[in-house]
């Protein structure tokens, strides 16, 4: 139930990291994937990040009713929760839906239309050619997207706080610039890289072993997203437990 798919997943990864036939072709594919994953996901990441920061600010302000707690704490909370949890994890879950489903359905369609067989017949290591560029594209672009997400989330919080009157601009800026622990950013980057790897490899695995037709491609795509989301949350806990 668990061990056989896990074994297949490990064997697929072994094939993925076999030496490429020609680096120049892989380089082009990597750049294509970086554009698709990075630039292609910028819009959705921008929207969710701004609202995440805004909602966190408003809700934190609502819960901080004590006069003993300075309002600048809202900025600190928004900053730390964005860096440590909201930006990497929520971005990864959104990317699992966007990038993961695309990877699974793209590879799954290639499988059921015999395009993967055609690659194999040509003597090409199909897992390497199809999956390695996606992994490299994701592990380089997702951390960048997360950094952008953090910046936008904090900015969203600033505007929400100022516009609603929940926290003054001065207090908010004081909050986000006080007591910053640089290691939280390291944890955030570790999470981003891990989540990117999880999204691409699990979705690619689901697509690569698709059997049947269009219906099964849909099922693989859904399964890729669901398993990626679960694994992201598990990895989130493990990384937090190990590093913090």
């Amino acid at each position: 139930m668990f061990f056989q798919p896990f074994g297949k997943y490990i064997l697929l990864l072994k094939a993925v990291f076999r030496r490429p036939e020609k680096w120049s072709i892989y380089r082009k594919e990597i750049l294509k994937e970086m554009v698709a994953i990075g630039v292609g996901s910028l819009g959705i990441i921008t929207i969710i990040s701004v609202f995440l920061g805004a909602v966190t600010t408003v809700q934190t302000a609502f819960q901080l009713v004590s006069n003993l707690v300075p309002r600048s704490v809202i900025g600190t909370i928004v900053r730390d929760s964005s860096i440590l949890e909201l930006s990497p994890t929520i971005s990864a879950i959104v990317l699992a839906g966007k990038v993961g489903s695309s990877v699974a359905s793209q590879i799954g369609t290639m499988r059921v239309t015999e395009q993967i067989d055609a690659l194999e017949i040509m003597g090409i290591n199909s897992p390497g050619y199809l999956i390695l560029p996606k992994i490299i594209g994701a592990v380089t672009m997702v951390p960048l997207l997360v950094i952008i997400s953090i910046a936008l989330s904090i900015t969203g919080g600033y505007f929400a706080g100022s516009l609603s009157g929940a926290v003054t601009a001065q207090d908010y800026i004081y909050g986000i610039t006080t007591d910053f622990i640089p290691f939280t950013f390291t944890v955030c980057m570790v999470k981003s890289v891990m989540f990117a790897f999880i999204i691409t490899t699990i979705s690619a695995y689901q697509g690569y072993y698709t059997r049947g037709g269009a219906l099964e491609v849909g099922i693989s795509s859904t399964r890729g997203v669901v398993i990626s989301c679960i694994m992201i949350l598990c990895a989130d806990y493990v990384i937090a437990q190990l590093l913090l």
Partner: peptide
């Protein structure tokens, strides 16, 4: 495999 060419049932063009 570099010596093999194959035509697939559904053509399998990329």
């Amino acid at each position: 495999r570099k010596e093999i060419g194959m035509l697939f049932q559904g053509s399998a063009l990329f």
